[in-house]
Amino acid sequence: MIYLKLFLSFFQVGLFSIGGGYAALPLIQNQVVEINGWLTMKEFSDLITIAEMTPGPIAINSASFVGNRIGGIAGSLAATFGCVLPSFIIVLTLAYLYQRYRKLTVVQGVLEGLRPAVVALIASAGLSILTLALWGEKGISDIGSINLIAVALVALSLFVLRKWRPNPIFVILGTGAAGILIYLNI
C-alpha cells in the first residue's frame, strides 16, 4: 500500500528532524533514496534545488514532490500529512510539558547530545551532494574523473558565501546560470 508507505516514511522524517531546515535533509535522503529508492541521488539533488527556490520548509516541499511522483495527488497528501502529524502531536505536548519541566536537566542533556549529531548528519547529506556535483551519478571511481568545472563553481560559491553572506538563493541561481553558459557550450 503505497499511500501508507509514503505516510510512514514522511512521518519518520517529521518525527526525527530536530532543528529544522537542513536537519531534515539526511532523513529525507535516507528514506527517499536509500530505503525506498523512490528517487535517484540526482533526482534528490534536483529536489533540494527546487525546494531551495520555492517557498516553504524543505521537508514539506519534499513530501509534496515525492508523494506526487510516487502516488499522485493522494500520495502527495498522504506524505505531507505524515510529515506534519508528528509536529502536531509533539509540539502541543511539549508546549504543555515545557511550562512544567523546562528546567529538567535530562531534557537539557538530550538536546546537548542531539545538537552535534544533527550537525554531523547535515554534513553527511552535504557530502553526498558534493560527491554528486563533483563526480556525477556513478560516484567516486577515481580522482582523475573529477569535474573541474564543478570544483571551480563550488569553490567560487563558497568564496562568495563566506565573503559577502548573500541570500543562498542568489548563489544557487548564479550557479544555475553558469551551468547553462558552460555545460551547453562544451
Binding site: I129, L153, V154, P168, L173, Y183
Partner: peptide, 23 residues
C-alpha cells in the same frame, strides 16, 4: 539539465557553508 548540474555545485557550497558555521 545544464542549469540543474550547475546548481548542484551551488547547493553543495550552501550546505558546506551552513555546516561550517554549525560545526
Amino acid at each position: 539539465n545544464a542549469a540543474l548540474k550547475g546548481m548542484q555545485a551551488g547547493i553543495a557550497a550552501v550546505i558546506i557553508d551552513v555546516v561550517y558555521d554549525l560545526a
